[in-house]
Amino acid sequence: MKKAMIFGLLACVSALSLGACGQQQPAAPPAPSVGTVTLTTESAELTNELPGRIAALETADVRPQITGVIRRRLFTEGSNVQAGQLLYEIEDAPYRAAVAQAKGSLATANATINSTALQAQRYKDLIAINAVSKQQYDDAAAAAQQARANVAAQQGALQAAQVNQNFTRIRAPISGRIGRSLFTPGALVSAAQTDALATIQRTDTVYVDVTQSAAQIIDLKQAMASGGVSEADGARIQLILPNGSVYPIEGRLQFADVTVDPNSGSVILRATFPNPNGLLLPGMYVRAKLVEGLRRNVILAPQQGVIRDPRGRATAMVVGKDNKVEVRQIEVDRAVGDKWIVTKGLNIGDRLIVEGLVNLRPGTVVKPGMPQQITVANGTGATGGAK
């Protein structure tokens, strides 16, 4: 009985052994496919996006220079006006009367000068024969001089009265688009008032005032001095409008202010932009993209190949020897389009992994290939594939 049980157990063990031998070991998983680009040196345009405001090329307030009641308004609000165009008329009756009075005073002075001049001439002839005293001649000559001076004074009074009369017709000081009128016919205005009647702004060309930190300006100048950055071919500026669209016409940088704002530590840069369609309005907030310079022979890494570790440091994965994944800690300067300028950690010829990064670990053997889709910005993207 015992022998039968022993033989039965041996038979079961043999059967299990034979079954185990018949099983095959599982095959190793295939190497994951990744998309790579081979890094090379390129030239990169350095741009900086700065906040700015639109300002009119010329601005003039329309103000009265005399006191009076507005009789007529002779323009349409929001229209374009030309320099010298008549805008307002002020009631001129008091000023016409002042001109007439000044003319009368001048006529009286002219009449007086004739009589005094003749008397002085007669006394001059009589004094030669001692017919009049020296004092009488001096008095007559002084009266003639006083009459001539009075004529000059009355001429000046007449001119002042005529100027004031001309001021009753208020004209445009510059050409441009005029805004709303703050005063209506019948309103009393004066030269001492603080409010302008209206404002004219020339906007066929506009200024864009942008602010840049003094530290950024110093960094750029030092980079140019060291030869790492060359000056851009003309300071070109592109505008990003409040709705996110790009203004189709490029502008030109005119100058940078000579002082730094002590409160913000920034410098004002002024650019000009053509505005033929009137799309740019004074006071509008915009973003200005300024081309600062050109950096040559730099490594540009696609942004999708640069990730941040839990400590916020920039890292990248490259395909190393034997197609094994290596992790590099890198340093980046700034973004250029959809790429980073890499200053440390990556070298020319490195195969940077830009696709298939999920679940990759250092040392993993991968199958490198061309990336499926790489967005190249501004035509400066580095492209490449597995070697």
Rank of each mutant, 00 (worst) to 15 (best):
residue 94 P to L: 01
residue 349 G to I: 09
residue 376 V to M: 07
residue 277 N to P: 04
residue 322 D to H: 14
residue 242 P to I: 08
residue 306 V to T: 07
residue 20 A to P: 00
residue 148 R to E: 06
residue 111 A to R: 04
residue 257 D to K: 08
residue 278 G to V: 04
residue 383 T to D: 05
residue 366 V to P: 15
residue 316 A to C: 08
residue 378 N to D: 15
residue 118 L to N: 09
residue 308 R to D: 08
residue 285 Y to C: 02
residue 281 L to V: 15
residue 180 R to H: 08
residue 281 L to W: 06
residue 318 V to A: 01
residue 360 L to S: 10
residue 188 L to W: 00
residue 122 R to E: 07
residue 341 I to L: 07
residue 75 F to Y: 12
residue 323 N to R: 02
residue 95 Y to P: 08
residue 65 Q to I: 01
residue 361 R to A: 09
residue 118 L to H: 06
residue 352 L to H: 06
residue 259 T to S: 13
residue 98 A to M: 03
residue 233 D to G: 13
residue 8 G to K: 00
residue 98 A to R: 07
residue 286 V to E: 01
residue 13 V to S: 05
residue 89 E to S: 14
residue 289 K to M: 12
residue 4 A to P: 01
residue 192 A to N: 12
residue 148 R to P: 01
residue 282 P to I: 08
residue 157 A to T: 03
residue 47 T to N: 06
residue 385 G to S: 15
residue 291 V to D: 11
residue 200 I to D: 12
residue 348 I to W: 00
residue 162 Q to K: 12
residue 163 V to N: 13
residue 340 W to D: 11
residue 292 E to P: 05
residue 287 R to E: 11
residue 96 R to Y: 05
residue 87 L to V: 07
residue 24 Q to K: 15
residue 95 Y to I: 09
residue 146 Q to H: 01
residue 229 V to T: 10
residue 162 Q to G: 10
residue 287 R to L: 14
residue 126 L to F: 04
residue 60 A to Q: 03
residue 256 A to N: 14
residue 319 V to L: 02
residue 339 K to W: 07
residue 2 K to D: 14
residue 115 S to M: 00
residue 265 G to P: 15
residue 172 A to W: 02
residue 337 G to P: 14
residue 59 T to V: 13
residue 99 V to M: 03
residue 263 N to W: 00
residue 351 R to M: 09
residue 300 L to F: 03
residue 116 T to D: 11
residue 74 L to A: 06
residue 259 T to G: 02
residue 115 S to Y: 02
residue 94 P to D: 12
residue 138 D to S: 03
residue 5 M to Q: 10
residue 31 A to P: 14
residue 168 T to L: 01
residue 11 A to L: 09
residue 83 A to S: 14
residue 117 A to C: 00
residue 369 G to F: 07
residue 234 G to C: 05
residue 235 A to Q: 10
residue 252 R to Y: 10
residue 72 R to G: 05
residue 102 A to M: 05
residue 272 T to I: 04
residue 254 Q to M: 09
residue 46 L to D: 04
residue 326 E to P: 14
residue 259 T to N: 08
residue 77 E to I: 03
residue 88 Y to S: 06
residue 122 R to V: 11
residue 215 A to P: 07
residue 305 G to M: 03
residue 246 V to W: 08
residue 384 G to T: 01
residue 15 A to Q: 01
residue 52 G to S: 06
residue 368 P to G: 13
residue 114 N to Y: 12
residue 361 R to S: 13
residue 31 A to C: 04
residue 223 A to R: 10
residue 331 E to Q: 13
residue 300 L to M: 06
residue 131 A to H: 07
residue 82 Q to D: 13
residue 28 A to Y: 00
residue 53 R to K: 11
residue 326 E to M: 12
residue 218 I to T: 15
residue 76 T to G: 08
residue 253 L to D: 02
residue 91 E to N: 13
residue 49 E to Y: 03
residue 233 D to W: 00
residue 309 D to K: 00
residue 351 R to N: 11
residue 94 P to C: 02
residue 104 G to Q: 11
residue 41 T to L: 09
residue 140 A to K: 01
residue 133 S to R: 00
residue 377 A to R: 04
residue 20 A to M: 08
